[in-house]
Structures are given as structure tokens and as C-alpha cells.
Design a protein around this nucleic acid. Sequence first.
DNA 1: TAGTGGTACTCGGTACTACAAAGTACCAGG
DNA 2: CCTGGTACTTTGTAGTACCGAGTACCACTA
Lengths: 108, 108
Amino acid sequence: MDDLTEMLKGTLEGCVLEIIGGEETYGYAITRRLNELGFTDVVEGTVYTILLRLEKNGLVQVTKRPSGMGPPRKFYALNDAGREELATFWAKWEYLSSRINNLREGGR
Amino acid sequence: MDDLTEMLKGTLEGCVLEIIGGEETYGYAITRRLNELGFTDVVEGTVYTILLRLEKNGLVQVTKRPSGMGPPRKFYALNDAGREELATFWAKWEYLSSRINNLREGGR
DNA sequence: TAGTGGTACTCGGTACTACAAAGTACCAGG
DNA sequence: CCTGGTACTTTGTAGTACCGAGTACCACTA
């Protein structure tokens, strides 16, 4: 699939929220997860900027833990604000995707 | 629905292409059409920048015609490149939306 | 005839986001 | 020691939707 970067704007952050909401995890693993979910071109740098943004906006709780396989990992978990943001994201996604699919089917 | 601007990035241009593909039309009418289709906050300035971009990228054919109801209108129609771009857009949209919905349903 | 409101397009600047690129650092195995 | 996989940081760039202000045409009306 060719370049999706513009289309990912606004949705990739929601995807990261969803992954974190499923289980406490860390940046490197999130990137790998996204890749295997079909977001093949998403790279680490992108995920880390999103994680820093989530942290700055107070949507996640961060815990640093040693790894054994390399440098220490920063684990991310959703807090209440994060869960709320995730729900908002899905509401927006549903709204937008339904409008777009309507448009495609002749526009009603 | 609250702010969708980030989520619209990469998709709004495709929506405009789809509308133009349906019938030859012009900026002001496209804005009104988007608004009634549920893209309520899209404003004229945004549509015009998209139209100029489409023209610059050689995806549309432009014809200026007098209006009777105000200043002359610039009518836009898809050319072959535009139709191809529209098909690519829908392919990307299908790909992306299916991945996102998969992710939502537990992630396989 | 001046004023208002709807139609219609242009242009300069801003904010936000995904991504590129380069670097730091930890650890295991040869 | 040196390579390769793991793991995070930082700076800068490009692309897009949006804002705001401006220009201009026309119909209607007081």
C-alpha cells in the first residue's frame, strides 16, 4: 500500500491509545504491534512523539522498568482522562467514517 | 461533533475528488455540499486551497463560466489523472479503515 | 442611491501531525 | 571488541486543514 501518512493524521494517535488501553506496554513493542496490524510503514520515531504527546497531555501513566533485553522500558497505561479520550476518538471515527462511506454511496 | 480537522487530513481531498467526479461543479457549491453531508465545519477557504492544489497537480479540468448570481464560477471536472487519483484514494481508505476496525475488534 | 446580504474566489499566515535522521545507550553472542 | 537487536531522545521538515482579511459581483430595498 502506498503512502498513508496524510491519512493517518488524527487516527494514529487513537490507534496507539487503543493499544495501550488493551494492555500496559511500551514504545518499541507498540511500533512492532502496529506494523503487524498492517500499519507497516509506521516507524519508532513517530510512535515516540505520540507517546510524549500523550504524556504531556496527561492521558497516560508512565512507569520505567528494567528490561534484561536492552535499555529500560517506559511502560504506558491509560488513566481516566486517557480512557475518555479513547472513547471520544472512536466516536469521531464512527462519525467520520460513516459520512465518508455515505458520500461514496451516492451521497445521502 | 467536536473538532475533526486532524482526522480530515488526507481524506477531505478525496471527498472533494468524489464530489467533482459525480458532476462538474464549483468551490462554493462543493462547500455547501460537504456541509450538508455532515462535514459541517468545513469552510470555503479550505475547499479553495484543495481545489487550487488539485489544479496544480493536474487532476482537474477548469472552466470559468458567468454566474448570474454573483461573480463568475470556476467549474471543476476530473480528467483521467483525477479519476485515477480518486480510485487510489478509495483503495487507501478501504485499506486504512479495515485495519482500524480490526484493531478496534481486539486486534487481529 | 447608498446600504445590506448572499454569492464566489484569493491570499498570507498558523497549528498540528507524521516522518526523517541522527544520536545515545544497554545487552548478548561470536 | 564488535556486530546486531533492543529501546528511547531530539531536531528538523513537509503536508494539510483552517483562520482571517480582502476583493468583487449581483439583487433587493429603504
